[in-house]
C-alpha cells in the first residue's frame, strides 16, 4: 500500500480564551484523516468548524495540543518535506512593498531556485495565474482577487507534490474561479495531491474525489462523494414540451410539483416510486415530447446542511463514519 500524502492521528487543538480567567476552547477534536496521493480532497465545514485550524496545524503555524500528523509519510516540520509542499493561506497577505515578480522570486529563492531560474519560475507562474503587466506593480496596489492569484502562484512555485489551499476561491471573480478549478485539475493530472478547504460546495463537487466535513471541531463525515451521495436519488425531474394545458396531470401522489417553464413546456417533479415510465407514456400519448428525465439526487449541499445542523454531531459522526469508511 502506498504512503498516504497526508495523515492525521487524533489531531487536537485547544486554544485559551477569556481575558482574566483563561479557559480552554477545543478548536479541533481528535481529527483522524488520511488522504491518498494524487487525489483532490475537500475539507468542508461552516465558519468555526476547524478547517483553518487543521491546515495551520499541518503547516506548523500552530502546534497540536495532542495527536500528530504526517505529510508525505514524514513527521511535520522536516525541511525535506517542506520543500515538497505548497500552501496558500486564507486571505493571503504578502509584503506590500514588493512587486508580484519580486515576491515570487524571493519565495523561489527560499526553495533554492536563485538567480535566473527563480525569475523564470516566477514569470511562468504569474503567466499561469493570469497576472500580466501588473507583475511589476507593488502588491499594495493589488486587488483581493489579484492577491489571491499571486497566493496561488507562490503555493506552487516549487512544483509541489502536495498542495494545501485554504479557501482558494475566496475573493475571485467567476473567471478567476474557473481558472483555479482548471489549475487544480492540472495539478491533479500531473500527480500532485491537492487538499483545499472551502465553503463553496459546488467547488468540492466539481473537483474533489473525496471530502471531509467538519463541524464544531469534529469530523462528522468523510469519504468519497459517490459514497456520500450515491443511491440517494429522491425522485425524478421530467421535462416535456408541446403539451396541451388540459393534458397536464394534477399534482398529487404521482406528481409532487409542476412548474410551467414556457408555453407548452413543463417540468414535473416525480417521487421515486412509482417509476416515471407510466406517466411518460401517458404524456406522450397526449402529444407531448420528452425533453429530459433526470434523477433528483441529494446534493452535497443537502448532505452538508442535514449533517452540520444536526443537534448531536457526535452521534452523526459515528453513524456516517461507520457507513462510509471501508
Amino acid at each position: 500500500m502506498s504512503t498516504p500524502a497526508l495523515a492525521t492521528f487524533d489531531l487536537t487543538k485547544d486554544f485559551s480564551i477569556g481575558f482574566w480567567r483563561k479557559r480552554p476552547y477545543r478548536a479541533l477534536d481528535r481529527l483522524t484523516l488520511e488522504i491518498t496521493a494524487g487525489e483532490v480532497f475537500g475539507l468542508l465545514g461552516p465558519n468555526g468548524a476547524g478547517k483553518t485550524t487543521t491546515l495551520k496545524l499541518l503547516m506548523q503555524l500552530i502546534f497540536p495540543t495532542s495527536g500528530r500528523a504526517e505529510l508525505l509519510g514524514r513527521p511535520l516540520g522536516e525541511l525535506s518535506v517542506k520543500r515538497r509542499i505548497g500552501y496558500l493561506p486564507e486571505n493571503p497577505y504578502f509584503y506590500d512593498y514588493l512587486t508580484a515578480e519580486e515576491l515570487l522570486t524571493y519565495f523561489a529563492g527560499l526553495f533554492g531556485y536563485t538567480g535566473r531560474e527563480g525569475r523564470t519560475r516566477a514569470s511562468r507562474l504569474l503567466d499561469q495565474v493570469g497576472i500580466g503587466a501588473e507583475r511589476r506593480l507593488q502588491l499594495r496596489k493589488f486587488s483581493k482577487g489579484m492577491l489571491q492569484r499571486v497566493g496561488i502562484a507562490q503555493a506552487i512555485i516549487n512544483d509541489p507534490e502536495l498542495v494545501i489551499f485554504d479557501e482558494p476561491m475566496s475573493g475571485l471573480d467567476p473567471l478567476g474561479r474557473r481558472d483555479v478549478r482548471a489549475l487544480v485539475l492540472q495539478l491533479r493530472d500531473r500527480g500532485c495531491t491537492v487538499l483545499f478547504s472551502s465553503h463553496v460546495l459546488g467547488d468540492a463537487e466539481a473537483l474533489c474525489s473525496r471530502v471531509a466535513i467538519l463541524a464544531r471541531g469534529r469530523l462528522i463525515a468523510d469519504g468519497s462523494l459517490s459514497d456520500m451521495l450515491a443511491f440517494k436519488a429522491r425522485g425524478w425531474e421530467l421535462v416535456v414540451a408541446g403539451i396541451d394545458e388540459r393534458s397536464v396531470p394534477v399534482a398529487g401522489s404521482r406528481v409532487r410539483r409542476i412548474v410551467q417553464i414556457g408555453y407548452g413546456r413543463y417540468a414535473f417533479e416525480l417521487p421515486l416510486e412509482p417509476p416515471p415510465e407510466q406517466l411518460m407514456a401517458e404524456l406522450t400519448a397526449a402529444g407531448a415530447h420528452l425533453v429530459s428525465l433526470n434523477p433528483i439526487r441529494e446534493s452535497l449541499e443537502d448532505f452538508f446542511i442535514e449533517h452540520v445542523t444536526a443537534p448531536d454531531v457526535t452521534s452523526i459522526r459515528r453513524e456516517v463514519a461507520g457507513e462510509s469508511r471501508p
Binding site: M59, Q60, K82, P89
Partner: peptide, 13 residues
Amino acid sequence: RRSIYALLPKPIY
C-alpha cells in the same frame, strides 16, 4: 499582517 502564514511553511526553520 499575516505575511508570516505564507513564509513559515517555506523550507526554513
